[in-house]
Design a protein around this nucleic acid. Structure first.
Length: 219
DNA sequence: GCGACAG
DNA sequence: ATCTTGTCGC
């Protein structure tokens, strides 16, 4: 990707960052949470959405979308690669409740990560959950959480799942406050992982490698 | 200028 | 992300 195009993408991110709502646009009761992820195999990209019931810890329904890879991975412009397939699978899935995305929300150089794009584009509540820190400073830990800031601006939070040494990074995608985002992610963690995302990850890799058939005989 | 850099 | 089985460690 050329520099000119990349600069345009960055400019659009700065522009659209103003569309992000960092407050609950509708109350969340944390009963149903959807996780999404994408698996790749050269020309193919398989996006999956998995809706789970937090109380019973069971999968309620799944959806997938086979797409083609549109762009290479560029830190800070991840949305060009993973945005299209995720938006397409969610458009048909029509999630009921918050959506957890394997990426950052406003914890981003231009405050508009993949989770923000998906949320703003579809008008749904999204939360970014990253496995590694893209930027920022982790402040003082209090219990299982610590704020992540950049020049005193709170961009997200580091959250330590029980029994795991390394934290995950939570940030607002769209339509939720950081507090709500943390509450939703906490409730979605068991066995040391953010389960809705973990299920979506396993399923996407499964559909990519063995096809849709493997769905029925899993979990 | 040099390194870092969501998946 | 992906190439890949067993294996070292808490």
């Amino acid at each position: 990707m050329d520099e000119k195009r990349l600069r345009e993408v960055y400019e659009e991110q700065r522009r659209r960052a103003h569309e992000v709502i960092q407050a609950d646009i509708r109350p969340i009761e944390v009963t149903r949470v959807t996780g999404v992820d994408v698996a790749y195999a050269d020309p193919l990209a398989v996006a999956c959405a998995v809706e789970m019931d937090i109380h019973s810890r069971r999968v309620l329904r799944v959806g997938h979308h086979v797409d083609h890879v549109e762009a290479e991975y560029i830190p800070g412009a991840f949305q060009l690669r993973e945005g299209p397939p995720i938006i397409r699978v969610l458009r048909q899935f029509r999630p009921d409740g918050p959506v957890l995305i394997d990426a950052n929300g406003i914890l981003h150089p231009r405050r508009f990560g993949l989770a923000c794009l998906v949320g703003v584009e579809l008008g749904i509540q999204t939360i970014g959950v990253a496995k590694s820190l893209l930027l920022g400073t982790i402040r003082e830990r209090a219990g299982d959480v610590a704020m992540v800031t950049e020049d005193d601006e709170v961009l997200g939070a580091a959250l330590w799942p029980e029994g795991r040494g390394r934290p995950i990074y939570v940030s607002v995608g769209h339509g939720v406050s950081l507090e709500t985002a943390i509450r939703v992610v906490r409730s979605s963690i068991w066995d040391g992982a953010v389960q809705p995302i973990r299920e979506a990850h396993i399923l996407s890799g499964d559909v990519l490698k063995h096809g849709l058939a493997s769905q029925s005989e899993t979990r």
